[in-house]
Computed example of a mutant assay.
Amino acid sequence: MDLRKYQRIALLTDGFSTPFLAKTAINLLRYRGDDVVAVIDRDHAGSDAGTVLGIDSPANAGIPVLAMIDQHDIDAVFVGIAPPGGKLPPRWDDLIAAAIDQGIDVVSGLHEFLCNRSEWVSAAERSGSRLIDVRKNDFRSVATCAAFDENCLRIHAIGNDCSLGKMVTCLEIQKGLQRRDLDAGFAATGQTGIMIAGTGIPIDCVVADFVNGAAESLTLAHQNHDVLLIEGQGSLSHPMFSAVTLGLLHGCAPDGLVFCYQPGRDFVKGLDGVAIPPLRTLMDLSVAMANLRHPCRLIGIAANTSLLSDAEAESEMQRACEEFDLPVCDVYRNGPDVLVDAVIRLKQEQPS
Rank of each mutant, 00 (worst) to 15 (best):
L3K: 02
K5W: 08
R8I: 02
R8F: 06
R8W: 04
A10D: 04
L12K: 13
T18R: 10
F20G: 13
L21C: 09
K23R: 14
I26H: 00
I26M: 00
A38L: 12
D41F: 03
D43H: 15
D48M: 08
A49H: 08
G50H: 00
G50D: 00
T51S: 08
V52M: 15
L53W: 01
G54F: 14
I55G: 00
D56Y: 12
S57P: 03
D75C: 04
A76C: 04
I81S: 03
G85A: 09
G85V: 12
P90F: 06
P90M: 03
R91N: 14
I100F: 11
Q102P: 12
I104W: 09
V107H: 02
S108F: 03
L110N: 13
H111P: 11
F113S: 07
S118C: 05
E125D: 12
G128R: 15
D133E: 15
A143K: 07
C145L: 14
A146W: 12
A146S: 15
D149H: 05
L153I: 12
R154W: 15
C162K: 07
S163A: 08
K166D: 11
T169E: 05
C170P: 12
K175N: 04
A187Y: 02
A188F: 14
G193E: 13
I194R: 04
M195R: 04
A197Y: 02
P202V: 10
N212Y: 08
E216G: 04
L218S: 01
Q223P: 10
V227R: 08
L229V: 05
E231S: 10
G232K: 06
L236F: 09
F241Y: 15
T245H: 11
T245W: 13
L248D: 01
L248R: 12
L249S: 07
P254V: 05
F259A: 03
G264K: 05
P277F: 03
P278N: 08
T281K: 11
M283A: 10
L285T: 11
L285W: 07
L285N: 10
L292T: 04
P295Y: 06
R297K: 10
S306K: 13
L308I: 15
E312D: 10
Q318S: 11
P327L: 14
D330R: 02
R333Y: 07
P336N: 12
P336D: 07
L339W: 02
L339Q: 03
L339F: 06
D341M: 09
R345L: 06
